[in-house]
Every structure is written in structure tokens, then in C-alpha cells.
Simulated scan of single mutants.
Amino acid sequence: MTKATGHMKEYAIRIWDCLKEADLEEMGLVFNELHMSTESESKRIEIKESWDYFKNNWDGIRVQEEEYDASLDAVQKDITVIYLQLE
């Protein structure tokens, strides 16, 4: 992703947000906008390769996101229990 968005950092932030939200549809729109805004053919190729990577590996990316969310929920519950014990 860094290679594809290095010339336009604001897109990296938007793509990262899509990853955090597990929103493939929005990510596709961001990649399309990035592709259309890029003049360099070599950068366009990098953008397409990055998009293809995300699209082809989306199931694994979603699983990692779900596992991360589950871990975060567990930590939050543990903190709540500890907090309640301290009261």
C-alpha cells in the first residue's frame, strides 16, 4: 500500500480506515479515485497491484480484523472487571 500511495498520502489514510472498518466496497472506490488521480503509468500499475492484493486476500484480512476485534473486546472486559474490583 505504501508504494501505491506514497505520492498521495491522504489516500493511505483513507485506505487504512477502510481496512479498520473491513469495508472492501469503499476501499475499491478509494483505489479507483487514486488510480484516476495518478498520471504516472508506473504508479498506476502499483495501485492496481495493491488493489488486486487486497481484493484477492480479503477473506484473510477480514479474519484478522475479526480476531483483532475479539481480542480488543476481551481486553476491555478484563479492564472493566479489574476496575470494578478496585471500587
Rank of each mutant, 00 (worst) to 15 (best):
Y11I: 07
L19T: 04
I82Y: 09
L72V: 12
Q64I: 11
E39Q: 04
I15S: 02
K3S: 14
E41M: 02
D52L: 06
A12F: 10
I79W: 13
K9R: 10
D73M: 13
V30L: 01
I61F: 07
E67K: 09
K9C: 05
N56P: 00
D78R: 13
S37D: 08
S40Y: 01
D17R: 07
E39P: 00
E39I: 03
Y83H: 15
H35W: 03
K3C: 13
W16A: 08
K55D: 11
S42M: 06
L19Y: 04
E66S: 04
R44T: 00
E87P: 05
W51M: 07
Q76H: 15
R62I: 14
I15E: 00
E10K: 10
I15Q: 01
Q76Y: 15
K43A: 05
D78N: 15
L34Q: 06
I61V: 10
R14D: 04
K77N: 14
K3A: 14
E21W: 06
R62H: 10
Q64C: 11
K20D: 09
K48N: 07
E26M: 00
L24E: 10
L86G: 10
M1L: 13
A70K: 07
K20Y: 09
T38V: 02
V63I: 14
Q85S: 10
K55N: 10
Y83A: 12
N32F: 07
Y53F: 12
I47E: 02
T5H: 08
L29M: 09
T2K: 15
D69E: 07
N32I: 00
E26Y: 04
E25S: 09
M8Q: 11
W51L: 07
G60C: 03
E46T: 02
R62S: 13
A22N: 13
I47C: 01
K3R: 15
E26F: 06
W16P: 00
L86W: 13
I15L: 04
S42H: 01
D17E: 11
K43P: 02
C18A: 09
M1G: 12
V63T: 15
K3F: 11
F31P: 07
K55W: 10
K43R: 06
C18Q: 07
S37C: 04
S71W: 00
A74D: 14
L34H: 01
K77V: 15
Y53N: 08
